[in-house]
Every structure is written in structure tokens, then in C-alpha cells.
Simulated scan of single mutants.
Amino acid sequence: MRKTIALAATLAFALSAAGASFAAAPCRDAKGKFIKCPAAAPAKPVKCKDAKGKFAKCGTPGAKPIA
């Protein structure tokens, strides 16, 4: 039982350490130096059309998102 708990704790620590290194990776260059993080692109608004093909609010019944 103690081996299982120790193994689980070690695995959890390893995964959290790996996750932290991946989170910091985008703000470093190839040499490992800190750089300014690139700005995230703004999300495009979703537009919807109704059954007749006219633009409608996306929450209305029968409205479907367009690509």
C-alpha cells in the first residue's frame, strides 16, 4: 500500500513539473532566454443563419452557425 501511494505521489509531482515547463516554453526563444510572448489572436465572432438563409441570433431556435 505504501509503495502505491509513493508511486502515485511521484507520478503526480512529475506530471505537474512537466506541465509547468510546457507552460513557460512559448515565452522563451531557442536558446532558452525569456522573450515577449506573442499576443493571442482575437476570436472571430460566430454568425448564424436561420432556415430561410437570413442572418439570425445564434440563440434562436433553428439558427445554425455558418462556416
Rank of each mutant, 00 (worst) to 15 (best):
F22G: 02
I5P: 05
P42N: 08
M1L: 15
A51E: 06
A24Q: 10
C27M: 05
A30E: 10
L15A: 11
K49S: 00
C48D: 00
L7M: 13
S16M: 15
A20M: 15
V46L: 05
A18W: 15
K47W: 04
C37F: 07
A41Q: 12
A23C: 10
I35S: 03
C48A: 01
P38S: 14
C58K: 04
A12I: 13
A56F: 01
K36Y: 02
L7C: 10
I5L: 15
F55Q: 02
T60C: 02
L15E: 03
K52I: 03
G62H: 03
G59K: 04
T60Q: 02
S21W: 15
P61N: 02
P26H: 15
I5G: 07
P42M: 08
L15Q: 08
T10H: 11
K54H: 11
P45I: 07
A23K: 11
A6V: 11
A67L: 12
F13A: 15
A14S: 13
P38C: 10
A23T: 07
K57A: 03
K57R: 12
A43V: 13
K33C: 03
K36D: 04
T60P: 01
L11Y: 06
S21V: 13
G32W: 00
A51M: 06
P65K: 04
A17D: 11
A12P: 09
A30T: 05
K36A: 09
C48R: 00
A9N: 02
D50H: 12
K54Q: 09
P38Y: 09
I66S: 03
P45M: 08
T4M: 13
K44Q: 07
A24W: 08
R2W: 14
K54G: 05
G59F: 02
T4V: 13
A51F: 06
C48F: 00
F13T: 09
S21T: 12
A24T: 08
G59M: 03
A8P: 01
L11K: 05
A39T: 06
F34A: 08
P26W: 14
A8Y: 00
P45L: 07
A12T: 11
C48Y: 00
K31H: 14
T60W: 01
K33R: 12
R2C: 14
P38E: 11
C27F: 06
K44I: 01
K36G: 04
A63H: 01
C48M: 00
